[in-house]
């Protein structure tokens, strides 16, 4: 564990807490993509299967349980409790275009051709693009509630913090994880447009609005 990874994980944790807070306080999941949240459930379940057979650390164990549990809870809240506030007509990104290519990439790029390793690779690739339905929805509506933008910013920053962590680990431990690194850089790249608007507008106290 190093400082960058801890910051990344805390940012990830914060993003989920912000998301649940938004749903609970506004009693609504307006502006949120159900598809993106469903993809995160798939990401966490396929990646954290090793919970059942590998012990890394208490920290690792608790965080994995939290990510699986909270993503399932979010999906439940969106699907049942606050269902009427979710508008499927603007959540129209075709997730087949994400899941299919990620599955093919995972079959080609993995550290071992076993079920658990292929699923792990799949989860890494899928995570890198899982935000697309959400960003696509944002693009369509052209604006977002401030709390939703804080959620997206924390979620984007989390993977960005992993980049200095990988550089640090390369120099201190000699560990290189090319699949995670390439996907992580791509994932962070997808947020650049969003970050630009977030830091120039929302952080200055303005509403998140995309230029027409």
């Amino acid at each position: 564990m190093n400082f960058f990874r801890l910051l990344g994980d805390l940012s990830h944790l914060a993003s989920i807490l912000i998301l649940l807070h938004k749903i609970k306080t506004t009693r609504s999941c307006r502006g949120l993509s159900f598809k993106t949240q469903a993809l995160y459930v798939a990401v966490f379940i396929t990646r954290y299967l090793d919970l059942t057979y590998r012990w890394v650390s208490l920290y690792n164990f608790v965080m994995k349980l939290f990510f699986i549990g909270s993503s399932c809870a979010t999906l439940y809240l969106m699907r049942y409790k606050y269902c009427p506030t979710h508008d499927p007509s603007i959540d129209t990104f075709k997730i087949e275009y994400l899941v299919g290519p990620c599955a093919i990439l995972a079959l080609i790029f993995n550290y071992k051709f076993s079920v658990s390793e292929v699923l792990w690779s799949f989860s890494i690739f899928l995570e890198s693009v899982a935000i697309l339905p959400q960003l696509f929805m944002l693009q369509r509506t052209g604006e977002a509630e401030t709390i939703t933008t804080h959620y997206l910013a924390a979620l984007g920053i989390y993977r960005a913090f992993y980049i200095p962590n990988w550089i640090y680990r390369y120099f201190t431990e000699g560990v290189v994880d090319p699949i995670a690194i390439v996907a992580g850089i791509a994932q962070t790249g997808l947020y650049l447009d969003f970050f630009y608007v977030y830091f120039t507008k929302v952080m200055q106290g303005e509403k998140f609005e995309l230029p027409a």
Binding site: R54, V56, Y111
Partner: peptide
């Protein structure tokens, strides 16, 4: 298991 296969990151 190699270090990358151990997947100690989240």
């Amino acid at each position: 298991e190699t270090p990358v296969e151990k997947h100690d990151e989240l």
